[in-house]
């Protein structure tokens, strides 16, 4: 460092710049850098181990760690630990779930909701994806897709609020219904399973649409033409060619929507009512209090995680694929 400064000081101002070496050249010429990298990169094997160390640490520490810790806590009788008291192992937290109807009900309601909503979303978005992939000219597809993506970027809370305004007693839907004379007093849409379903479909539909679109887009047009040549009618073509070939998109889309819709917390709180309590709310209840309810919450979360992942695993297996291409 000192060398460069003295050299710069003595040289002509404009020549100084051109006499300098580039940063990377200087780095490679630096003797301490050379000494360090000589040790670090001595063999290919050593280089690989250095490259691998941090990613392995990160996925174990930050990706797997929280899940394992949650499982562990679910078997403790108290957490966070209090000073001087050794936590004991117990199955009680897991048993709590099976003992009370108020815990089981939201659990099965959540699964039922998620399954119904997944299917509904599939039925709603399939024609949209098909239209985009097969009837819109290739050059325009990006425009049409972007139109759907813009609302998608807006966050969960803002969009939930938008649904609240739409469905409220003085909301746009009721205003129109009254104006049309279909009803004389506002219909209470809010805080029902209807408002909740509409909201969740509103939030998740793009997770279904995008995988469907990309799998439908990949189907070559001449497949359908070939099927038509062989005398297949439109419905037969759809069920024998298009649908099987878009299986991949259906599998990814359904998995995503199912997993995401079981995980919403704010939306059920804001759009649902007492009759629509979902399991996320049940779990969250154990964490509002700072006390020893955490282990029960952890057990309930574990139950939900195991159930959802098992269900999606079975589903993907039935659809004939591994979870590999899931996140495309």
């Amino acid at each position: 460092m000192a060398h460069t400064e003295t050299r710069q000081g003595s040289a002509e101002p404009n020549a100084a710049g051109s006499q300098r070496r580039s940063f990377w050249g200087a780095l490679l010429g630096n003797s301490s850098y050379d000494a360090v990298t000589r040790v670090l990169f001595k063999t290919q094997r050593r280089q690989f181990i250095i490259l691998a160390s941090f990613p392995l640490f990160w996925v174990l520490f930050a990706h797997l760690g929280p899940i394992l810790q949650m499982f562990w806590i679910s078997f403790l009788d108290s957490y966070p630990p209090t000073a001087g008291v050794e936590p004991q192992l117990t199955f009680a937290n897991w048993m709590t779930f099976f003992e009370a109807r108020i815990f089981m009900m939201p659990f099965f309601r959540t699964l039922g909701f998620a399954l119904t909503l997944t299917l509904t979303t599939l039925l709603i978005t399939y024609p949209v994806a098909y239209f985009l992939a097969k009837h819109v000219r290739r050059g325009n597809q990006l425009m049409f897709l972007l139109l759907l993506l813009i609302p998608f970027w807006v966050g969960e809370i803002v969009r939930t609020y938008a649904i609240m305004i739409l469905l409220g007693n003085t909301g746009a839907v009721n205003l129109i219904l009254q104006w049309l004379g279909l009803t004389d007093r506002p219909i209470p849409f809010m805080y029902t399973s209807f408002s909740l379903s509409l909201g969740i479909i509103y939030l998740t539909s793009l997770y279904m649409l995008l995988p469907l679109y990309s799998s439908l887009e990949k189907i070559p047009r001449n497949y359908l033409e070939a099927a038509a040549d062989l005398g297949a009618g439109p419905w037969r073509r759809f069920f024998r060619v298009t649908l099987p070939l878009s299986r991949e998109g259906i599998a990814s889309g359904c998995t995503l929507v199912f997993l995401i819709s079981t995980g919403y917390y704010a939306t059920p709180v804001l759009l649902g009512g007492p009759s629509t309590t979902v399991f996320a709310e049940t779990i969250a209840g154990f964490f509002h209090v700072a006390g020893d309810e955490w282990p029960v919450g952890a057990a309930f979360s574990s139950i939900m995680l195991i159930t959802t992942l098992t269900l999606t695993g079975i589903f993907l297996k039935l659809m004939g694929r591994t979870g590999k291409g899931l996140m495309e």
Partner: peptide, 21 residues
């Protein structure tokens, strides 16, 4: 698979497990 794990865990469970962690 471990790398993708946080992306497939339902939101509430992800939040709770991270809270505990």
């Amino acid at each position: 698979a471990l790398t993708c794990l946080p992306a497939v865990i339902p939101g509430i469970i992800s939040a709770i497990s991270l809270r505990i962690y």
